[in-house]
Write a protein that binds this DNA or RNA. Structure first.
Lengths: 188, 188
DNA sequence: GCCAAGTGTGAGTGGTTGACCACACAAGGA
DNA sequence: TCCTTGTGTGGTCAACCACTCACACTTGGC
């Protein structure tokens, strides 16, 4: 017979997905080295020991989270590109930029990208995931928009500028230099 | 009588400067949370205990290093702007970009900026230094180049793109997406 | 030579971290 | 009912971290 609640315990796979989702918020604040596995466990509502049942070690946990974020970003761009299909490269890129702005309105997605970049410097496994992530992203943006190399490059340059603005919590500051940096960058 | 070597011990001020200089290399790899004060001490050739005589705590040590890096970057841009004085905004900005490319050819300067950005997210003291640093940088670039808001913005956007390229150690990879991202970015 | 001020370190301290393991409990088929 | 398989945790541990302190050595003025 089927019980009322489908299950009392989750399957390991379900738990892994929960951890992946909630760990974004945990790692977003202090990145790879500054975030403890206990914090990740608390965010997922499980014990710290169980984190190590689901992931072999901290590095693979982090790389899985980063990979998951890249998937989310790509999915968001795909939706935007689908809606703007058939338009000029400029319009498609603008739609993608807008989708990105919406996606990261809670900032955590973007902060993971920033922290992944920082960790990539000295952690080869993270570097590989970041490379793969941007490789697919760049090729997807190029293909879906049909933009030139220059347009695609500028698309990502603006994305990186977003990281800077968010990491400085620029919306707390009102000054000419901030307005210059964030000109034309939508903020939801 | 005057001894052969002017001094056997350094003054505290000299030591502080040594630490500031050498700590750039130490923090460049793993950033604020991933770098231990022991590593900083080793890079400076002093004991870990003495680091704490020269700086009250790790946070103020790191912010001092970040501040020092901003000073170096600004000085480099100033030299470039002085040489290109009187030219059009485009030429001055190009000279500055080239100077920046030369300055960070060893990558450590840039990596400190990246790690400072990452730490700024959750460390208010670091955030303040980063804000101040970019505030002066943006205003200086605007003033010295006479460029429009858009030109200045693009100048910094390209700088951020540099951070991404360096953090991924992109020069190890040869692929279309890498060439798209790093098109026109000088590499010494 | 003496002494006060400054430079520098070895040897810790308390607290935290990533990782591990024995064990308890739930599920569900035989 | 029993028993295998899988879910989940408390308790622990060695290693490590930021930070401290007592103490030794140098310097330079007298």
């Amino acid at each position: 017979m089927k019980s009322e609640r489908p299950r009392q315990l989750s399957t390991a796979e379900e738990r892994r997905e929960t951890v992946l989702r909630t760990a974004i918020g945990a790692f977003a604040a202090r990145g790879y080295w500054g975030t403890t596995t206990t914090e990740v466990a608390k965010a997922a509502g499980i014990s710290q020991a169980y984190v190590y049942r689901l992931f072999p070690n901290k590095e693979l946990l982090f790389t899985a989270v980063v990979e998951h974020c890249f998937v989310l970003v790509r999915a968001s761009l795909e939706r935007a590109a689908a809606e703007a299909k058939g338009s000029s490269a400029e319009v498609v890129l603008e739609a993608m930029g807008d989708a990105y702005a919406r996606l990261i309105s809670d900032n955590d997605l973007m902060l993971i990208q920033l922290h992944a970049q920082a960790a990539a410097v000295s952690e080869p496994a993270v570097r590989e995931v970041v490379r793969q992530g941007y490789a697919r992203l760049v090729e997807y943006v190029r293909g879906a928009s049909g933009g030139t190399d220059g347009e695609v490059q500028e698309f990502f340059a603006r994305g990186m500028l977003c990281h800077l603005i968010v990491s400085m919590v620029a919306d707390e500051v009102d000054a000419p230099w901030i307005r210059t940096l964030s000109a034309g960058i939508t903020h939801y």
